[in-house]
Amino acid sequence: MFDDIRPYRDDEVVDVIEKLINEKGLQASIASLKMPRLYQVFPSLACTIVKWSLKIRVQKFHNIEQIQIEVAKYLHHLIKSSTAGFSFSGMDNFDNTKPALFISNHRDIVLDVALVNLALYKSGISTVEAAVGDNLLDQPWVADLMRINKSFIVKRSEDTKRAMLTASKQLSAYIHDTVSNRQQNIWIAQREGRAKDGIDKTNSALISMLLLNKDKQTPIADYLAEINIVPVSISYEFDPCDTDKAIELAEKEATGSYQKKAGEDLRSITQGLVGQKGRVHIEFCQPIQGDYCDSKAIAAAIDKEIISHYKLYDSNLVAHAKLNNLSINDTVLKLLNKRMENLSTAQQHWLLTMYANPVTAKQNLQL
């Protein structure tokens, strides 16, 4: 029933790894990142080196847990090299002995869920199965790579409304079965696509999808208790992709559209992982419980938790002050100006806006 979307199981790991080692696309991607000069001049040689390196490094992996432990080591290194500190709190806000559906704001393609997983791992809590949209999986090997690390597929590219509804029902059933029956944590972003403008808003259509599996006789409160939604608020001091996002937002404003370039998602993933992020904080919020009237009310409750627990940094406060002609911390303004030095006036406005919007959201919450 779920074989085409579920993560791979332990008994599939060895075969999938063997398949990945021989994937030319994966070899080329690693070679272009790790040895760009050699790959440019002798691509076949670079790919061969990558293939044999992979063979040696992955021969110890025979189950999912071994892969996750290795990923955790990489994340520890990544946090040391690309952040000024990673913190998390709120573990006492929810019953961590009960499986949860974590719904977070979405700023980074890969790192959001990776950091949620790291916080859970450090707290001795089972890591999540993570939702990943098939729009990011343009090559079959990319899907294999995600599914071998506890990711499941969200079908967003179906051709007809009927097919989309069928896919949504399958996804809803899978999430409920995973949390309620298989007792496994899940993570999904609050909306499709990153919040490039800094506005963290849950798409009510996501909640409607989650409720598709609910029997008509089951009260919403009971179903919410079964899937156990725990909002998660993720705050980055600086966004490594902020200039790219500002360029995209300015172009959309000017022309009404933006055309992604080939390989843009992969570049965003890489930049998001290795780029400097300053301080990063994750707050686990109160579970969403009670008898809500509809999907929009549940989405609003998630938004309230995420916004109220969002950690504002000087980068947010200074950008908001700059846009509203208030007094400004010159030191932080210099950092923002440095990031904007190659941007047009319109692009600079959007970069400041994406940092300022969380401040505005908090202010509006207090009105």
Rank of each mutant, 00 (worst) to 15 (best):
residue 363 Q to E: 15
residue 210 L to H: 02
residue 135 N to M: 03
residue 347 Q to C: 04
residue 159 D to R: 14
residue 98 K to W: 02
residue 41 V to F: 12
residue 142 V to M: 13
residue 60 K to G: 05
residue 151 S to W: 00
residue 342 N to H: 12
residue 35 M to E: 08
residue 147 R to G: 03
residue 320 H to D: 10
residue 18 E to R: 14
residue 363 Q to S: 14
residue 171 L to V: 04
residue 333 L to Y: 11
residue 179 V to K: 06
residue 65 E to D: 13
residue 150 K to V: 00
residue 266 L to V: 10
residue 322 K to V: 15
residue 201 K to Y: 08
residue 104 S to Y: 01
residue 163 A to T: 03
residue 328 I to D: 02
residue 113 V to C: 13
residue 8 Y to D: 01
residue 11 D to M: 06
residue 179 V to Y: 04
residue 238 F to T: 01
residue 111 L to H: 01
residue 305 E to H: 09
residue 283 E to R: 14
residue 8 Y to P: 01
residue 215 D to G: 07
residue 239 D to S: 05
residue 98 K to H: 11
residue 189 A to V: 10
residue 146 M to P: 00
residue 140 P to S: 06
residue 285 C to W: 05
residue 94 F to C: 08
residue 13 V to K: 13
residue 63 N to A: 06
residue 264 E to S: 14
residue 280 V to D: 04
residue 299 A to L: 03
residue 232 V to A: 10
residue 37 R to V: 13
residue 327 S to M: 01
residue 266 L to S: 11
residue 217 Q to R: 12
residue 197 D to H: 07
residue 28 A to W: 02
residue 306 I to C: 07
residue 268 S to G: 15
residue 192 E to L: 13
residue 30 I to D: 01
residue 114 A to M: 13
residue 331 T to D: 08
residue 94 F to L: 06
residue 320 H to C: 09
residue 341 E to K: 15
residue 159 D to P: 14
residue 291 D to N: 15
residue 254 A to L: 13
residue 259 Q to Y: 11
residue 154 V to F: 00
residue 18 E to S: 15
residue 190 Q to G: 10
residue 270 T to Q: 13
residue 16 V to C: 08
residue 273 L to K: 10
residue 282 I to T: 01
